[in-house]
Design a protein around this nucleic acid. Structure first.
Lengths: 159, 159
DNA sequence: GGGTTTCCCATGGTATCCCATTGTATCCCG
DNA sequence: CGGGATACAATGGGATACCATGGGAAACCC
């Protein structure tokens, strides 16, 4: 249960996108009919995806760690208090998969991705990301640099 | 559980490669049906391989070391922060083994290896590597030099 | 009722399954 | 211990199943 690989998928003229088999297989076996898309809280043009269970688990951890044990009660009552989990939920949508593994990309996400004819699906272990292909290209190059620097910085000597 | 030996395996016209019996036997007994291929983070033309468990264990250690104990929540949310485990995951693919021990090499890896008709499988203890045979030849010569120098430099007296 | 969404069918390409072949270890047996 | 029998490893190839994608038609919805 870990999302891997990067796959370029077509966005057809009807707004449909295929969730690749490699990703579908990572969804919980008892809940393959739908998953969650949500806006990245830190990168404007990025959309994240996860199984419903995975997304919910993240929200739970968020509330537990960010608000403490009494957080959920407070958040249920105090509309003034900022609730990060609520914020993410507002920007999230449950999308259902067609029997053939495709889903209709909600217009709002097409817009933030600025996607025209393709979407890059990228596995990030416990979630996956949807990128504009061109933007992913740039991002990937930057990450390669950071990875090289990270490896160089590992203690243990340069041998 | 340690990968050893170097074995030259054919890449047939259908893109299939045999995972040698010596390597298959090193996969966990309860998960022999698939393993993970991933791009080397430091050497451009090199592909690494490991069992799913071995790869996942490496990602866990990576995150523990790179992010500290509280990092998991941050990494789940902050798409801007660099996540080495996520980087490796994006460049990884789970490949399933056929009953006869072969697997189809994903085109992306064939390309980075620049493999035409053969792949050199090299055991590196807790993982293995897939090399272009010619490049491995050069690499091996270089390593032989380094090994000799390393042993010469070992403390413990000149006997 | 026009545009959208969902379902279904079609198609090309790839991957998977299965069967076959060859060579090399290993085994058995007197 | 020799010799054949056997098992398995490595490879090739045909047939089938599945993946990714396009498009038509029915269902839907203010």
């Amino acid at each position: 249960m870990a999302f891997r690989s990067e796959i370029l998928i077509k966005l057809d003229k009807k707004g449909r996108v295929l969730l690749p088999a490699a990703f579908r297989d990572e969804l919980p076996a008892d809940d393959r009919g739908a998953f969650v898309l949500y806006h990245s809280p830190t990168i404007p043009g990025l959309v994240n995806g996860n199984s419903r269970a995975g997304f919910d688990a993240m929200l739970d951890r968020l509330r537990a760690e960010a608000l403490g044990p009494k957080g959920s009660l407070k958040v249920a009552l105090d509309d003034e208090a900022f609730d990060p989990a609520g914020y993410l939920s507002a920007g999230a949508r449950t999308v259902s998969l067609e029997p053939d593994g495709r889903f209709t990309m909600p217009a709002e996400f097409v817009q933030t991705l600025d996607a025209t004819d393709g979407v890059m699906l990228v596995g990030k272990v416990e979630k996956f990301q949807l990128w504009n292909p061109a933007r992913w290209q740039a991002r990937r190059d930057a990450e390669r640099e950071k990875m090289a620097a990270f490896v160089r910085g590992l203690s243990g000597g340069d041998a």
